[in-house]
Design a protein around this nucleic acid. Structure first.
Length: 292
DNA sequence: GGTAGACCTGGACGC
DNA sequence: GCGTCCAGGTCTACC
């Protein structure tokens, strides 16, 4: 089944896919002609491959197999969320036009970041970016998906992202020894158990009207989510008041404004303070000087 | 409130 | 091939 979904302009399919490294993490993969595929577990329990590619003014989605009306609605809803089709970033572009380092943002339709269908999946993946190399994150996510995700019937070597219930049932020992999550295993397990039991309704945070500070506070209550991870999840939720300060951010800000001298999170915050509620986007899409 | 050290893995490096 | 060192963000104990 194929379907075209419109996006609020300006929109660029490739800008979303390339917005951060999420497209490199299972069960995403890049397909022919720049399309994006995602092994997808529908609410019905059926596992299918979702293929997304650019279409005039938006995206075209395709799902294999017979898709009933309820599944069609779910695919449209989730694809719109994943690509931020309804996001209005015009206030950010209005500010960015006056900043040479962001002057190309509107023309390139930069601003949307690729999301997973569920905040649970985004949260687990964010936890697995913590204190490791990007190669390590790719490895851990791939292991998690292949060991605990439901297989794609047409291609059983590919799997969907595991459900909270499936991960909750996995023991910490398995997550450490087999999936090699290391010290992140208890955090992932605790998050999965809270989501599976209903104690933590992560998905409701996608539509909450809570002030960002309060939302950030809730995210920080999750074990394994510190300032960096909370800011990253807030970006995914469309809240840009915080900057996900990691070692890369410290290095880039040091190079951009402090001639390579060591800086801390306070200097990173100060550098983008004037961007207010668009701070995170200004940081994310800044045209950084290449380190010497 | 601020700081130091542990957590865990994989990769780089030296021998 | 083996051992050592390092990068990476969060948590906890301690001051």
């Amino acid at each position: 089944m194929e379907r075209t979904l419109p996006a609020l302009p300006p929109f660029s399919f490739s800008a979303v896919v390339q917005s951060h490294g999420w497209a490199e993490l299972a069960p995403f993969s890049t397909g022919a002609a720049g399309s994006l595929t995602y092994v997808y577990r529908l609410d019905s329990g059926r596992v299918a491959e979702l293929r997304v590619r650019e279409a005039p003014g938006g995206i075209e989605t395709a799902v294999d197999g017979t898709v009933d009306g309820r599944e069609q609605d779910q695919v449209a809803r989730d694809a719109a969320w994943m690509f931020g089709l309804h996001q209005d970033l015009s206030p950010f572009y209005a500010l960015a036009r006056a900043e040479p380092k962001l002057a190309q943002a509107e023309a390139r339709a930069q601003g949307r970041v690729l999301r997973c269908p569920t905040l649970f999946e985004d949260a687990v993946k964010t936890m697995l970016t913590v204190n490791t190399s990007w190669a390590g994150t790719i490895r851990m996510v791939a292991a998690l998906v292949s060991q605990f995700g439901d297989p794609l019937p047409a291609e059983p070597t590919r799997h969907a992202f595991p459900t909270p219930q499936r991960l909750a049932a996995a023991g910490e020992a398995a997550l450490r020894a087999e999936t090699r999550l290391g010290f992140r295993a208890p955090s992932v397990l605790q998050l999965a158990r809270a989501a599976a039991s209903g104690d933590l309704d992560l998905e409701s945070l996608k539509t909450t009207h809570l002030p960002t500070a309060e939302l950030r506070g809730r995210l920080l209550q999750v074990r394994g989510v510190g300032p960096y991870a909370a800011a990253n999840l807030l970006m995914i939720l469309g809240r840009y008041d915080c900057i996900p300060v990691d070692s890369w951010a410290l290095k880039m800000v040091s190079n951009e404004w402090y001639e390579g001298q060591p800086v801390g999170p306070a200097e990173v915050e100060a550098a983008f303070e004037r961007w207010g509620e668009w701070k995170g986007l200004a940081y994310w899409f800044w045209d950084w000087r290449t380190p010497a």
